[in-house]
Design a protein around this nucleic acid. Structure first.
Length: 504
RNA sequence: CGGGGCGUGGUGUAACGGCUAACAUGCUUGCUUUGGGAGCAAGUGACUCCGGGUUCGAAUCCCGGCGCCCCGACCA
């Protein structure tokens, strides 16, 4: 392993952050040492996933095996999102993964958008199939074909369906969690009577994603609308949630589409309206995927490994025992179990690590896995009625009273959650730049920033900017400040700023 | 599909064309240890990616495959 500092070929920034004693991989320590972010961001990302034991590539190129530690995070995400969806009347259902090829061909933009990345089954049961079956890249087509049978009158609306599923998109270049051939996601699909209602629903779901990102994952996000060239294939409007990663690149965290009547017309999703006339439904679809786990890593993790916000952590508190001799063993373990039961009563997720190995080894392991709070319990603590508490986010260590452990830990978990969010907000603020000249634009994009700049709305100019700088318009933000200006590239008049960045 | 890099025990690496392919780590057993990655001892483990060629002799040089990683194009 080279000791030299590497720069990414695309010139993107290697974020700074916490300093770490390891300036290179120390091979004498095995494979658990993480490449610092400042040295090689891609390698750091993969190292964190490996160190936290979250996922690995499968024998089939581009596919990902999600290991229990990684999957636990996904399960928590599902739980949190499901609760939010259900509050708004959405119900879960499941549709098959095989889609007749002709379904996909019904909506012109949709086929064109997905054609390059679909996988098709042509043979089954030892025979060539009469009609090829597409492995769903998304379920609009198969669901809406069904919806057309389910919906008769306005009384059947709104129809609010969500499904948790896997989808297949034959991507050229995989990246664990961020882009894999098969990934897990949630896709919501709704049908409404009016355009207004559909638009409100698309915005409402986007708001749920924002709430989830910020409140649970502690990831600050920017909400907005995609430009024509960036919107979903077949959508009328695509709303999105964008987050900024530690290398300054943008990650599309989630999307919500107002589909208009495009699909309704293609799939005959009609209903008898209040005025006794047949009308096409107004539809939405919205989704988030296992990609969020990548976003979680790239927002909070550091050079020691994963850092999990308490609200998403599968294990919030780990109690590590420190045992010097056999006489103390039972006493210490009994105390650990007692403390654990107190914490569990308060709904805190605790794990006891009483393995008979040296303490340092345990500490490092739980740090790599991102557990927010570690409690150490040894002979000294037993004597003093204390526990030693370490925070994952700040590294801060304090001795706390065993009597107050529940309150102290609960407060600390809250503090960690808040601190991670505040830290991410501060970082984003640092990376957001407002520019008015092309020179500054190029400079700030090169430096890996989010750039607020004027753009006239010309798709050709948008493409040209992408060509020259690799930056794309992440969104036209909802909180766009309306002001007169001129397009950063073309000089044409513009009424407001949009957000540019390089993205994943 | 282009550009770059790399294929050696489970993992990370070393070896000028030349002894039995080395070192670290892991794993197994035993003893000793335990408040930040322990120590000692014994053991385990590789047709050096595959196929051809050059040579007295190939992990090493040449040709051809295959595979992996990184960077682009495509995308959530």
């Amino acid at each position: 392993m080279s000791n030299e500092t590497k720069t990414n070929a695309d010139g993107s920034i290697n974020a700074g952050g916490d300093t770490n004693n390891n300036t290179k991989k120390d091979v004498s320590k095995g494979s658990n040492i993480i490449t610092p972010r400042s040295q090689d961001y891609s390698e750091w990302y993969l190292d964190v996933i490996k160190a936290a034991d979250m996922a690995e590539y499968s024998p089939v190129k581009g596919c990902m095996i999600i290991k229990p530690t990684g999957y636990a995070i996904w399960e928590n995400m599902q739980k949190e999102l499901d609760a939010r969806f259900k509050e708004t009347g959405v119900e879960n259902a499941y549709f098959p993964m095989f889609i007749p090829e002709r379904f996909l061909n019904k909506e012109k933009e949709h086929v064109e958008g997905f054609a390059p990345e679909i996988a098709v089954v042509t043979h089954a049961g030892g025979k060539k199939l009469d009609e090829p079956l597409v492995l769903r890249p998304t379920s609009e087509t198969i669901m809406y074909d069904t919806f057309s049978h389910w919906i008769q009158s306005y009384r059947d609306l709104p129809l609010l369906i969500n499904q948790w599923a896997n989808v297949i998109r034959w991507e050229m270049r995989p990246r664990l969690f961020l882009r894999t051939v098969e990934f897990l996601w949630q896709e919501g699909h709704t049908v409404h009577e009016t355009e207004k209602e559909a638009d409100e629903r698309a915005r409402e779901m986007l708001e749920i994603y924002r709430d989830f990102a910020e409140e649970v994952l502690a990831i600050p996000v920017i909400l907005g609308v995609k430009t024509e060239s960036e919107k979903f294939a077949g959508a009328f409007k695509t709303y999105c949630v964008e987050a900024i990663m530690q290398d300054g690149k943008a990650l599309q965290f989630g999307t919500s589409h107002h589909l208009g009547q495009n699909f309704a017309k293609a799939f005959d999703v009609k209903f008898l309206g209040r005025e006794n006339t047949m009308e096409y439904g107004w539809q939405t679809s919205w989704g988030v995927s296992t990609r969020m786990i990548g976003g979680l890593i790239m927002t909070h993790a550091d050079d020691k490994g994963l850092v999990l916000p308490p609200k998403i952590a599968g294990v919030q508190v780990v109690i590590t025992t420190i045992i010097n001799n056999d006489e103390d063993r039972d006493l210490i373990i009994a105390k650990a179990q007692e403390v654990s039961s107190w914490l569990k009563e308060e709904g805190i997720k605790v794990k006891i690590d009483s393995r008979d190995i040296r303490p340092g080894e345990k500490f490092y392991e739980w740090e790599r896995k991102g557990v927010p709070v570690r409690l150490e319990l040894g002979k000294k603590d037993l004597a003093n009625n204390t526990l030693f508490m370490a925070r994952r986010d700040t590294g801060e260590k304090t001795s706390i009273s065993a009597d107050d452990v529940v309150v102290t830990v609960a407060n600390t978990l809250e503090a960690i959650q808040a601190n991670l969010y505040d830290r991410a907000v501060a970082y984003r603020k640092e990376k957001e730049k407002v520019v008015d000249t092309w020179e500054d634009f190029v400079k700030e994009i090169e430096a890996g920033n989010f750039v607020h700049a004027h753009w006239s709305g010309d798709a050709g100019v948008e493409a040209q900017i992408k060509e020259e700088t690799a930056a794309t318009i992440r969104c036209i933000p909802f909180d766009q400040k309306m002001e007169d200006g001129v397009c950063i590239k073309s000089g044409k008049p513009s009424k407001g700023r949009v957000v540019f960045a390089k993205s994943y």
